[in-house]
Design a protein around this nucleic acid. Structure first.
Length: 502
RNA sequence: GCUCCCGUAGUCUAGUCCGGUCAAGGAUCGGGGCCUUUCGAGCCUCAGACGCGGGUUCGAAUCCCGCCGGGAGCACCA
């Protein structure tokens, strides 16, 4: 039958069971994440491991959204474990970052349970280190960083690798006792100096760092590296699945190797996702931290930082960020997306809630000659929901319009939206009241000073209709033909809003 | 250079494990139209993709081999 060829088979089938030839269009439901390997409902334990060097930004979103989504899907637990080992000179810990991270997660709707700190767990790491050293599978190395690197490159073992266990343990005690300065000794795992992957040749597990830690001060001077601390904590905390970016695949190998040596049975499954990048956007905590310190950015919620705080300030909904991230699934592709994709998601969510108002950036005064006496006009708060009511806009013969519109339409007939038709100029000529199919522009009288902070940090200044002065902070509105914005500050003198997107 | 990972429309993604209902689905972007007193939303519509070359098979996006392209790691950072 099978070597008959499709056409013959089809003909045969048409003869015996024609209904089977009907094309089945399976409807595509909402996108779902693939299942986690070996996941058991209500028994999944995941962890979030932020490094507290600053608030979370959009580039971190994939990690926390996926972890949260899977936790909820399996009714599991999500631990927040601050990865606050001592770090490096270039990436110092920031005391205020702990709260900034939590604030961001809470805004994002990430429901974490227990909060833990790596810096509280150092004694546990020491215990495990001693177990490991006792097996002879790790050693204390006194080579300097440069020597170590060169040996690694040359696949050459150093003298420390073959020293005996007693000597190694004595050196470890000496490390803890403070007999080594920074850079003078490290603990290394014996993997294989000839391993084909140069990244996997006797990696460092502990090093000496005599910096002050924001939580535990100078209590420790021997600090674990990420791979080792997680080998300990993933096991001890009963983590079932580790979801991490694929930049951390080597860490899987390291953790696995350590568990093999110490015969740890309970191990998490590793799941990776590709690197997420944003087009035309360079995310760097250390850079924006520096720029905030220098006063070049206004703070951690400056739109140029792309922190969660800054997204909130612009009126981006957490649900939009979540949908945006989930749309990438769990693929291992490295992806680069434009922020526009996030905006599209957000626009769907805020459009129905955002009432419409006129904002006129960089205004130009226009006197309308021949205007009948009119004191106010009405316009819908939202064109798609007439039931929401109307807003009253004071009108008059002296109005202000955006310079851009003025320049573009000067001398032409335009409609001042919801008001009247004029031939536009400094002295405009009234034509008629009734609506017409001509370009419509926004206008104001008795406008309130309005500053619109743009994503690039610049401000668009102008006037908006008086009602904007009675909006509340956090209201998200649409300035017609300008875009969506969140009201950030309202005072008698002025309104400040943050631009979200068109 | 070495190791690992990944290649479906401009972008993101479903499908790839278990080859045929895939003449490849969705989203976004772009074109056109309708509607609308916004350049927003909504509705309709058009355009657009299996990196390349071999092989296996009646049949390949799906399996195999080779190539090409992209990314990550190769820190005493995380």
């Amino acid at each position: 039958m099978n070597d008959l060829g499709l056409e013959t088979q089809r003909a045969e089938l048409a003869a015996i069971a024609p209904e089977l030839l009907e094309k089945i269009r399976h409807d595509v439901g909402p996108k779902e994440l693939p299942p986690l390997p070996d996941a058991v409902d209500a028994a999944v334990v995941l962890r979030l491991a932020p490094y507290p060097s600053g608030p979370l930004h959009i580039g971190n979103a994939r990690a926390f959204v996926l972890n949260d989504a899977y936790t909820k899907r399996y009714h599991g637990k999500l631990l927040l474990v601050f990865d606050d080992t001592i770090g490096s000179e270039e990436k110092p810990l920031l005391p205020e970052a702990f709260d900034q991270v939590k604030e961001g997660l809470e805004w994002a709707g990430v429901e974490y349970g227990e909060v833990l700190y790596k810096s509280d767990r150092i004694p546990l790491h020491y215990e495990w280190a001693e177990k490991l050293l006792a097996t002879g599978e790790a050693y204390v190395c006194e080579c300097d960083a440069e020597t170590l690197r060169k040996n690694r490159e040359a696949m050459r073992a150093c003298v420390h690798r073959i020293q005996d266990v007693d000597e190694t343990i004595a050196m470890w005690k000496a490390m803890l006792a403070g007999e080594y300065g920074e850079g003078e000794a490290v603990v290394r795992l014996k993997t294989d100096m000839a391993h084909p992957n140069p990244a996997f040749r006797d990696r460092v597990l502990f090093r000496v760092a005599v910096r002050e830690h924001p939580r535990v001060g100078t209590r420790y001077r021997v600090w674990p590296m990420l791979e080792f601390s997680w080998a300990v904590d993933d096991a001890l905390l009963g983590i079932t699945h580790v979801l991490r970016g694929k930049d951390l695949v080597m860490e899987d190998l390291m953790e696995t190797r350590i568990w093999d040596i110490l015969q740890v049975d309970r191990r998490p499954r590793f799941v990776h996702f590709g690197i997420l990048r944003f087009k035309d956007l360079e995310l760097s905590k250390s850079r924006y931290r520096k720029e905030i310190a220098e006063g070049r950015l206004t703070g951690i919620d400056d739109p140029r930082t792309w922190t969660l705080q800054s997204l909130r300030r612009r009126g981006i909904r957490p649900a939009a960020l979540r949908e945006f991230v989930l749309s990438f699934g769990l693929s291992l592709n490295d992806i680069e997306v434009p922020a526009e994709t996030l905006y599209a998601e957000n626009r769907k969510m805020i459009d129905k809630d955002a009432n419409r108002y006129f904002f006129v950036p960089d205004p130009v005064v226009v006197e309308i000659a021949g205007l009948p006496p009119i004191e106010r006009v009405k316009a819908p708060l939202h064109p798609d929901f007439p039931g929401r009511g109307v807003r009253e806009i004071p009108a008059g013969s002296k109005v202000e319009v955006a310079r851009e519109d003025f320049t573009k339409f000067r001398g032409q007939e335009v409609r001042l939206k919801d008001f009247c038709n004029v031939v536009l100029d400094h002295r405009a000529r009234f034509i008629s009241m009734a609506n017409k199919e001509i370009p419509k522009i926004q206008w104001v009288t008795h406008g309130v000073q309005t500053h619109l902070v743009m994503p690039d940090g610049t401000e668009s200044r102008g006037l908006s209709e008086p009602l904007v002065g009675s909006l509340k902070v956090d209201d998200v509105v649409q300035f017609e033909r300008v875009g969506f914005a969140r009201i950030d500050h309202v005072s008698k003198a002025e309104v400040r809003a943050y631009f979200a997107h068109r």
